[in-house]
Design a protein around this nucleic acid. Structure first.
Length: 203
DNA sequence: TACTAGATCGGCT
DNA sequence: GCCGATCTAGTAG
């Protein structure tokens, strides 16, 4: 297990860029959540950018109660309910008034895997297959990390959920593709993942 | 492995 | 009413 606890939190300037730029930079960074007096941590291995300029984004049609966090200044967590049963979490990017965010689609678990398994499968043991299935999708990782609407708007430099810095990946280790599960603006190559990583939702 | 349906809620037309 | 930035269990091949 890598010693992530010595890494610094990302500062707010990190988030004040285009969602696409932030998305790429987020790969390899570490998401940490405090849960039951324990830390759950994972390396971000797959992301998608969303911006108010394109139809697939929740912010495309302007401000609403659901998406209001997307329009705040970068550095917050945007959580929403999808298909009535799943949660997905995003990192808000850019300046206040601009609706943009990066969907975290998959992470590689770093510690307390038995606790992640408890949240996700309601059991503390897991097979090798289940280990890979723990956090390899946006709703899966929210379940494993126990992220829900109560975390919407959470500041990412706080103590509940936060992101830690890590060395930027080389471009040659980043794969760029179209986004998954959308029907509009399908052509944009706004999905990024770490080449060869086993915890990616779809290679 | 590949496709399909069903679950189930809230946002928005 | 309709449909979605998903996942799971089921069936068919």
């Amino acid at each position: 297990m890598i010693n992530f606890q010595n890494l610094p939190k990302l500062d707010q300037g990190f988030y004040l860029k285009d969602a696409v730029e932030v998305a790429k930079n987020l790969l390899g960074k570490i998401i940490v959540r405090q849960y039951n007096n324990k830390l759950l941590a994972g390396t971000i291995v797959e992301v998608e950018a969303y911006d108010e300029s394109e139809e697939a984004s929740h912010s495309f049609n302007g401000l609403s109660r659901r998406n209001e966090v997307m329009f705040q200044k970068g550095g917050l967590l945007y959580v929403y309910l999808i298909y009535g049963i799943h949660y997905c979490c995003n990192v808000v990017t850019g300046n206040a008034g601009h609706g943009a965010a990066v969907l975290i689609r998959a992470v590689e678990p770093l510690n307390n895997l038995n606790l992640l398994a408890k949240n996700r499968f309601n059991k503390t043991s897991y097979s090798e297959k289940e280990k890979l299935n723990l956090t390899n999708g946006p709703a899966k990782l929210c379940k494993a990390f126990h992220i829900n609407l109560a975390d919407n708007g959470e500041k990412l430099d706080g103590n509940n959920i936060y992101l830690l810095d890590a060395p930027r990946l080389k471009d040659e280790n980043i794969v760029q593709t179209t986004r998954i599960g959308i029907t509009q603006a399908k052509e944009l190559l706004w999905r990024f993942y770490i080449k060869g990583n086993r915890f990616v939702s779809k290679p």
